[in-house]
Amino acid sequence: MNTGSLATTDWSAVALFVVVAGAMLWGLVFFLRQNRSDLDSLQETLRSERDEDDEEEKTR
């Protein structure tokens, strides 16, 4: 291994890559959590509307 290549590594580029990768990972996690929250809310809304429709059918 060439020990000179390690000394010439551009550490600012490595740090930038790590920061950008971390931000993208955080954004993906945030997106998936928000999607899960929206899905739960939608399922609850659909469940309550279905229950209301069932009650209306029983009164007819």
Rank of each mutant, 00 (worst) to 15 (best):
L25K: 06
W11P: 02
L6W: 13
R36N: 01
E57M: 14
L46H: 06
W26V: 09
E49D: 05
T59M: 12
T59N: 01
W26L: 06
T3D: 13
G22T: 02
K58G: 01
V20E: 01
Q34G: 05
T3N: 15
L42Y: 10
T59E: 06
M24Q: 05
N35A: 13
G22M: 03
E57T: 07
S5D: 11
W26P: 00
S48I: 13
A23K: 01
V19H: 02
Q43L: 12
S37D: 07
T3I: 14
A15D: 14
R60C: 00
G27Q: 01
A23N: 08
F30L: 05
W11I: 15
E44G: 02
D53R: 10
G4D: 14
R47G: 01
F17L: 04
D40C: 03
N35W: 10
D40Q: 03
V18P: 03
D54R: 15
A13R: 15
S48F: 09
A7C: 03
S48Q: 08
D53T: 08
L25N: 06
S5C: 12
M24F: 07
L6N: 11
S48A: 04
E52Y: 13
F31A: 12
A23S: 13
A13W: 09
T9E: 08
Q34I: 12
S12V: 07
V14P: 00
V29S: 02
V18Y: 10
M1C: 08
D40T: 07
S48E: 11
L42F: 09
L25M: 13
Q43T: 07
L46Q: 01
V14T: 04
A15T: 14
A21R: 03
E57C: 04
A21T: 06
A23P: 00
V20K: 00
S41R: 14
S41F: 05
W11G: 07
D40M: 09
E57R: 15
G27L: 03
E52C: 01
L46V: 15
D38H: 08
F30A: 12
A15Q: 07
A13L: 15
R36M: 01
D53P: 00
L32Q: 06
E56G: 02
V20S: 05
S48K: 13
A21D: 11
S48L: 09
S48T: 14
E52L: 13
A21K: 04
F30Y: 15
D40L: 06
R60Q: 04
L32K: 10
R47E: 01
M1W: 04
L28C: 10
S12H: 06
K58I: 15
G4C: 07
Q34T: 13
L6M: 15
E49R: 11
M1T: 05
N35S: 15
R33N: 06
Q43Y: 11
A13M: 13
E55F: 12
L46N: 09
D53N: 03
A23R: 02
M24Y: 01
L16G: 12
T8Q: 08
E55V: 00
A21N: 10
N35Y: 04
L28S: 06
N35C: 09
N2C: 03
R60S: 02
G4R: 09
M24R: 04
V18M: 14
G22P: 02
V18E: 11
G4M: 13
T59V: 07
T45V: 14
W11Y: 11
S5N: 12
R36K: 15
D54V: 08
V14W: 02
T3L: 14
G4P: 00
A13F: 11
S48C: 05
L39F: 07
L16E: 15
D38Y: 09
F17N: 03
